[in-house]
């Protein structure tokens, strides 16, 4: 059944959209990532204009992370103070990101920007994750080895120290603010929540306890993407609410199924699988940038 999307101005199969939402939802539930990094390229692939695909992800992620954040708030696994510092950086980053996005859309370079960002970030994150998980897998074979986490890194020597009780940390507010800022930019440009960058950064750079990392990042993502939605809606007119709600519907159901599957799998295997998937998306996008396109010309503006 074809459905005409009012903002994207294309007709897309309704079940294809629900199915995409569901599959990405399952993956996000399994791996504990938002899945935006998979959904944006997939939406572009099925013919949604890139600008609409990126902007529409924002409300979709808002809904998805709200759903997850609620559960974490109930379990008190959210460091709200840390979340607010991350959020302050995120809002500023989103503002900057949407401006960059608008500027490059006018120059006709937005597709390139989105692709390049994806290739760079997915390549780096996927590669690091892959190496990390292969190493842990190798170490876990040797009995008696306990992984040690470094707690004092250079970032802890910065000024403006704050006490974060939930995370048991007394550190400078600059690193979380900066991380939030970077994630905010990426959320606006790439149509992602940014969990895949924020979570490792919170663990390795800030040294937060793993228990509160996911909840806190969902808390931040929810607000930043809500803000990004409003910015994209008012500046680029590219948010397709109908599309977002359909993807969200498939996504929330999928996330629950994914969470059930995840319990039955080993954490190391999950991480390798996720790393493999991230790298696959990265390679596909890199390939498309390098290979000669089917048509060198493209049209913009419906009229």
């Amino acid at each position: 059944m074809q459905l005409y999307l009012p903002i994207a101005e294309v007709s897309v199969n309704l079940f294809l959209l629900l199915g995409l939402g569901l599959i990405v939802g399952i993956l996000s539930g399994m791996f504990g990532v938002g899945g935006g990094f998979l959904l944006t390229p997939l939406l572009i692939f099925i013919g949604i204009p890139p600008a609409v695909a990126v902007a529409t992800q924002a409300p979709q992620i808002t809904g998805l992370s709200f759903s997850g954040a609620l559960a974490h708030l109930r379990r008190r696994t959210v460091d709200i103070k840390m979340g607010l510092v991350l959020l302050a950086g995120g809002l500023l980053g989103s503002l900057v990101g949407v401006r960059i996005f608008k500027l490059l859309s006018e120059l006709g370079q937005v597709e390139l920007l989105v692709s390049l960002c994806y290739v760079v970030f997915l390549g780096v994150i996927g590669g690091l994750m892959f190496i990390e998980s292969v190493n842990t897998l190798r170490k876990s074979r040797k009995p008696g080895h306990v992984p040690v986490r470094k707690r004092h890194v250079w970032v802890h020597r910065l000024p403006i120290k704050m006490r974060f009780r939930t995370s048991h940390l007394y550190i400078s507010a600059i690193p979380p603010f900066a991380i939030g800022f970077v994630v905010g930019i990426l959320s606006a440009i790439m149509g992602v929540g940014g969990g895949f960058i924020m979570v490792p950064a919170m663990i390795y750079l800030i040294g937060m306890p793993t228990a509160v990392v996911v909840g806190t990042s969902l808390f931040q993502i929810m607000f930043v993407t809500a803000f990004t939605t409003i910015l994209h809606a008012t500046q680029n007119y590219t948010v397709d609410t109908l599309l977002a709600l359909l993807l969200l519907l498939g996504g929330v159901i999928g996330a629950q199924i994914g969470a059930i599957i995840a319990v039955k799998l080993k954490a190391e295997q999950l991480r390798i699988a996720l790393a493999g998937m991230v790298l696959a998306v990265c390679l596909k996008l890199a390939f498309d940038l390098v290979v000669t396109p089917a048509d060198l010309y493209s049209l913009t503006g419906q009229m």
């Binding site: 979709q60 809904g63 709200f66 759903s67 809500a226 939605t229 629950q256």
Partner: peptide, 15 residues
């Protein structure tokens, strides 16, 4: 924009 966010939050909460 506000309506989009509200609907998304509503659906997320309902789920």
């Amino acid at each position: 924009g506000v309506l989009s966010v509200a609907l998304a939050l509503g659906l997320g909460w309902a789920a």
